[in-house]
Amino acid sequence: MNCALITGASKGIGRAIALQLSRDHRLHILINYSSDLPAAEETLATITAEGGSAELLKFNVENKQEVDSVISNWQQEHPDGFIRVLVNNAGIAKDTLFMWMSEKNWDDVIGISLKGMFNVTQNVIRQMLKNKTGRIINMSSVSGLKGVAGQTNYSAAKAGIIGATKSLAQEVAKMNITVNAVAPGFIDTAMLKGVDMEKYMKSIPAGRIGQPEEVAHLVSFLASEKSSYITGEVIHINGGLYS
């Protein structure tokens, strides 16, 4: 049973990716969530209503012991299950100017986005290495490439993901495992709540914000066999927005 694990899949980009991977690849979708059970259940219901196969996996990506326990228990209960695709999507933003940023806001953002990617990937990649195949897609951001004022913590986390992606890709390429990063710009999700988009719209050549489904189509391609010679890359999806 080939599976895809998407962290932070209860809503937004994560939900769109979960739905697209189910539609395009007929993978059994492991919907990771940390606290929003109703939203996760909605993702699950949509997949199953379309004839797909999915289940919920509750864990906090920041907690390595919890990650290892939940994923390892799942693998023991599903000896025929293979997480062939991993999408490290979980992340949060806690924006403020650096001089006023609390240590907790720094640690939370780095912990969920960057440490979370480490925790989940280190567990899942063992089975990929054993099977000599796999796809790892890490969600970065335009913020990790150009930096954004008021997002020092978020930009640092997303830049770290890029560095980790490039290094890990070189370590596992000979095992037919690809590791790539996707760097969205402004995407229509709850993360844009409270953002004055009129301020930024002129800087987007496409003249609009992106949709989660557009990001999901890119991730679906990277999860496919068609992308087998692409690894260590950062693929931008931002309507032409660059520094």
Score class of each variant (00 low, 15 high):
A216L: 07
K193Q: 14
V219C: 09
H217C: 01
H217Y: 12
A169H: 07
L218I: 14
V195E: 01
G207M: 11
S220V: 02
G160S: 03
G194V: 04
A190K: 14
M175H: 14
S167P: 01
Q211E: 15
L222T: 12
A223P: 10
V172D: 06
A183F: 11
G185Q: 12
Y200L: 08
R208L: 11
N180A: 13
I162N: 07
G210M: 02
R208G: 04
G207N: 11
A223T: 14
T165M: 03
I161N: 07
K202I: 01
T165G: 07
G160C: 01
S220L: 04
T189S: 07
I162C: 08
M197H: 10
T165L: 03
N176D: 15
M191L: 14
E171T: 06
P205K: 04
P212C: 06
A164K: 04
T165P: 05
V219W: 12
Q211V: 06
I204P: 04
E171A: 13
N176I: 00
H217L: 08
L218D: 07
F221I: 00
I209E: 10
T178F: 01
K193I: 04
I177R: 10
K199C: 05
A173C: 09
K166P: 02
K199A: 13
F186N: 04
G185R: 11
A206E: 13
A190Q: 12
Y200K: 11
P184V: 01
E213K: 11
A183N: 12
T189Q: 08
A173N: 08
A169K: 03
E171H: 06
T189G: 10
K193D: 15
G194F: 05
E214D: 06
I187H: 05
L192K: 11
S167K: 02
I177T: 02
L168W: 00
I187T: 01
F221Q: 02
A164H: 09
T165K: 08
L222G: 11
P184T: 02
E214G: 08
F186S: 06
V179K: 03
F221R: 09
L222V: 14
I209C: 06
K166E: 11
Q170A: 14
M201H: 08
V219I: 15
S220D: 01
I209G: 08
K193R: 13
Q211Y: 08
Q211R: 14
I204A: 02
E198R: 15
A164C: 05
A223G: 10
N180T: 06
P205R: 03
L168D: 00
A183I: 08
G160P: 01
S167I: 07
D196V: 13
K202Q: 13
